[in-house]
Amino acid sequence: MATTPKPYKTKSKVPVVSESAVIASYQSLYGNPISVLTNSKNGLSAKAALDFLNLSGFTKEEFQDTFKTNVKTIQNYVSNSSKLDAALSEKLLKSFSLFDKGIEIFGSAKLFHQWLNTPSYGLGNQTPFDLMDTITGITLIEEELIRIEYGDLA
């Protein structure tokens, strides 16, 4: 049974910055597993969560469901210049990396977001977005993107 992809929308009041500029500002933090580990343990600035929210096009509800935190809490952390805990930092870094690959393959965050909300044969007809709430799910989505990149869709 085919489902209609969720629409791409963002309701953020933060100024829009180019996708490539946002990705570029975080690439060195997730470029290799040691960077991800070190930067996760050190904790990302809470601003990283808002940057991801803007990049991804997730609604506040989608963000909150995926990252198990409230946007209002993140905004308070930003006001207090607080850092995020290791688990949330790791998930954000893996998500930035995922969007980097998705934008590379699909051409824009908007198109990648649409794909994330479409059932994928390579993921057992599950919607990729529904897997993003765990590191394992993000890894499975990354593997599916690599298969798409190389034309291995069977």
Results as ranks from 00 to 15, higher is better:
residue 69 T to I: 13
residue 69 T to P: 05
residue 70 N to L: 06
residue 71 V to C: 09
residue 72 K to M: 11
residue 73 T to C: 04
residue 73 T to G: 00
residue 75 Q to T: 10
residue 75 Q to F: 02
residue 75 Q to E: 15
residue 76 N to C: 00
residue 77 Y to E: 07
residue 77 Y to W: 13
residue 77 Y to S: 07
residue 78 V to L: 06
residue 79 S to T: 09
residue 79 S to W: 10
residue 79 S to Y: 13
residue 80 N to G: 01
residue 81 S to Q: 14
residue 81 S to E: 15
residue 84 L to V: 02
residue 84 L to H: 02
residue 86 A to L: 07
residue 86 A to W: 06
residue 86 A to H: 05
residue 87 A to V: 11
residue 87 A to S: 12
residue 89 S to R: 08
residue 90 E to I: 06
residue 92 L to D: 05
residue 93 L to Y: 03
residue 93 L to T: 02
residue 94 K to V: 04
residue 94 K to M: 14
residue 95 S to M: 00
residue 96 F to G: 02
residue 99 F to L: 05
residue 100 D to T: 02
residue 100 D to E: 12
residue 100 D to M: 02
residue 100 D to Q: 08
residue 101 K to W: 06
residue 101 K to E: 12
residue 102 G to Y: 00
residue 103 I to R: 04
residue 104 E to Q: 13
residue 104 E to T: 09
residue 104 E to M: 10
residue 106 F to M: 07
residue 106 F to V: 03
residue 108 S to K: 06
residue 108 S to M: 08
residue 109 A to T: 08
residue 109 A to H: 08
residue 110 K to D: 11
residue 111 L to R: 10
residue 111 L to M: 11
residue 112 F to N: 04
residue 112 F to R: 02
residue 113 H to R: 15
residue 114 Q to E: 15
residue 115 W to M: 06
residue 117 N to H: 15
residue 118 T to S: 14
residue 120 S to Q: 15
residue 120 S to E: 15
residue 123 L to S: 05
residue 123 L to A: 03
residue 124 G to P: 13
residue 125 N to Y: 15
residue 126 Q to F: 13
residue 127 T to H: 07
residue 127 T to Y: 04
residue 128 P to H: 07
residue 129 F to G: 00
residue 130 D to N: 15
residue 130 D to P: 09
residue 132 M to P: 04
residue 132 M to S: 05
residue 132 M to F: 09
